[in-house]
């Protein structure tokens, strides 16, 4: 087997192991949360027997390890359990499967993340490469300070500034990114423009600065001097000789930021009332809807692991020593 393939399979296996470990951590940390769903729903006045019966119905009376095995067993088969909410003392069960709750929200979140990524990654790379090319020029300094300013401001503040300029003063985009499954693609893009721009402003700086630093770090290498002595132009030196060797750190930062786009954007979702997973999770925490919280947390963990894994693989592939062994 090609050593690269073996490494990738190894990493993949490690990723799955990590995911299991994380699932244990998620499950046990939720056990430490104070309060009890049955008690909370039925109220202070509920009879002890009623509470016990309700707990039994939800399966909360079983020992923790049994509940974990039930839950993880279902997850492996694609069943994340049933939401606690939708039940009440009346005995009518309107509860929904966790998958049905999360799926449309996840779709929205991924859509927003993808939009922000499509805008921000190319911008960050282009800004980073050009800043390295014109190092210490006015251009370089301007780009550096502007991105630094945008990353230094809290994201909700950036969001409100954008709303002020692009929704209130000039009615270019809608204030609320209110989308439902029946909205057409063009309209979707239009409505999510402001949250996507907010996220772009938040993450570009990090990626751009890493690109610039990774390239500049290589410019002192003897092979860069060699390229200069071959009469290669500066732009070609950066693109052909420096960039291919700089991918590993850049891709790692990109993966880190993409993961943030999926798991960390709850504040932006709230500002734009965007129906994403972040909001779902926050709501579930306030209602102690544990199956939903667990499901969201597991998806977030999987996103992190998957993106970091991809970054690892890209850095391995970009290293000719690993790709072309002796």
């Amino acid at each position: 087997m090609h050593p690269i393939l073996r490494t990738i399979l190894q990493r993949l296996g490690l990723g799955i192991v990590t995911l299991f470990v994380v699932s244990v951590i998620i499950f046990s940390s939720i056990q430490f949360l104070p309060g009890d769903f049955a008690q909370a729903i039925l109220g202070q006045a509920a009879l002890e027997e009623t509470v016990a019966a309700f707990r039994k119905e939800l399966g909360l009376d079983l020992p923790a390890w049994q509940r974990y095995l039930q839950w993880i067993g279902g997850v492996v088969q694609g069943d994340f359990g049933t939401s606690f909410s939708g039940r009440d003392a009346s005995g009518v069960d309107r509860s929904r499967a966790v998958v049905d709750l999360i799926a449309p929200r996840l779709e929205n979140t991924l859509f927003l993340a993808l939009m922000a990524a499509i805008i921000s990654v190319p911008i960050a790379l282009i800004l980073g490469v050009t800043a390295a090319l014109y190092r210490n020029s006015i251009y370089d300094r301007t780009v550096n300070s502007l991105t630094l300013i945008s990353i230094s401001m809290p994201e909700f503040f950036v969001a409100y500034i954008l709303i002020l300029f692009f929704a209130s003063l000039n009615k270019v985009f809608p204030t609320l990114a209110n989308i439902s499954p029946d909205v057409e693609l063009g309209e979707r893009i239009y409505r999510t423009a402001l949250p996507a721009m907010t996220l772009t402003l938040v993450i570009v700086a990090h990626m751009m600065r890493m690109t610039r630093a990774a390239i500049i770090n290589l410019l002192a290498s003897p092979y860069i001097e060699m390229a200069e002595l071959k009469g290669v132009s500066r732009a070609t030196i950066i693109l052909r000789h420096a960039l291919p060797n700089a991918w590993a750190p850049i891709v790692n930062v990109i993966a880190f930021n993409l993961a943030y786009l999926v798991v960390g954007v709850v504040v932006v979702e709230v500002v734009f009332v965007y129906p994403g997973v972040g909001q779902l999770m926050v709501d579930a925490v306030t209602t102690r809807d544990m199956p939903v919280v667990q499901g969201c947390a597991l998806i977030f963990a999987a996103t992190y692991i998957l993106l970091n894994l991809s970054a690892d693989i890209v850095s391995i592939i970009s290293n000719p020593r690993l790709l072309h062994p002796r």
Partner: peptide, 12 residues
């Protein structure tokens, strides 16, 4: 150059 190992770009 003196050090051939360092003066060749490792990725080409």
């Amino acid at each position: 150059a003196q050090s051939a190992a360092a003066s060749f770009n490792p990725s080409h």
